[in-house]
Design a protein around this nucleic acid. Sequence first.
DNA 1: GTAACTGCAAACGCTTTGCACTCCC
DNA 2: GGGAGTGCAAAGCGTTTGCAGTTAC
Lengths: 140, 140
Amino acid sequence: MKMMDDQEIIELFKKNQFKVTTQRIAIYKFVFSRGDHPSTDQIYQVLKKDYPALSLGTVYKTLDLLEKLGLLQKLRFNEDRVRYDPDMELHINMVCSICGQIYDYKAENIKQLWNVIISDIGVKPMGQRIDLYYECNDCR
Amino acid sequence: MKMMDDQEIIELFKKNQFKVTTQRIAIYKFVFSRGDHPSTDQIYQVLKKDYPALSLGTVYKTLDLLEKLGLLQKLRFNEDRVRYDPDMELHINMVCSICGQIYDYKAENIKQLWNVIISDIGVKPMGQRIDLYYECNDCR
DNA sequence: GTAACTGCAAACGCTTTGCACTCCC
DNA sequence: GGGAGTGCAAAGCGTTTGCAGTTAC
């Protein structure tokens, strides 16, 4: 999803009876300004510079809240920590097997091919997750 | 991969200079006899009945060893524990959004469609993981 | 005999929880 | 003013690690 501006995200919080706090806005904007899939700790480390009092617990709670609002997807790769994917549309997670860096690949024909697969299987999909492991340019 | 018989798996261990132990054979056979994706604890709980002295540490170590041999894939879903998928070929993990049960869906045309996607992206794939979330018959 | 493996328990790291204080509304 | 949200620290839990005893070879 495209990043909402301040006014839109504030409205969304209010509409859902969540209070609007500096921390929530900052975390939302940070995660959605990135093309990759940051972990809780990465988010915490960066935002702590601007908000020294920020706690890791608040980062976790806010990300859970954003997930409940359907704005992002919690993903576990083969590592200990959770990562957050702010793109809820169909895409492929391009995961470098060496360095672990992840970016999203999107293309119209993937949707078409995926729909063919879905109709073959014959179930009503609630969502999906597609990872492609490869060696990125930096590691190759 | 199809489950190897006792002789084959013993040969494979020996070929790779790993000692053949009762625990290793039992864990291998258990994971490969199942169509789903058991967690470490599930494996431990079941095998403890036949091997009361078995420890959880040995289960972890053995599964890591089987992964190193390329026999299975470690997968993290949106839960705390690791699951083990003994099927290394291209397939779709059918994950029930409600109860979390997982089974593999395989079909020839998925491979063809996946190859189309791969060649569109234009990278050399090292592997992949495809999850489809749906509501299984028991939960619907 | 000896090096690898096992079982056990402690350590580890990420995540969750509980609670007093704070600050939106 | 009141209740939701925050920060902090402790607890929780799956996984890893270290080590003494055991077993495969």
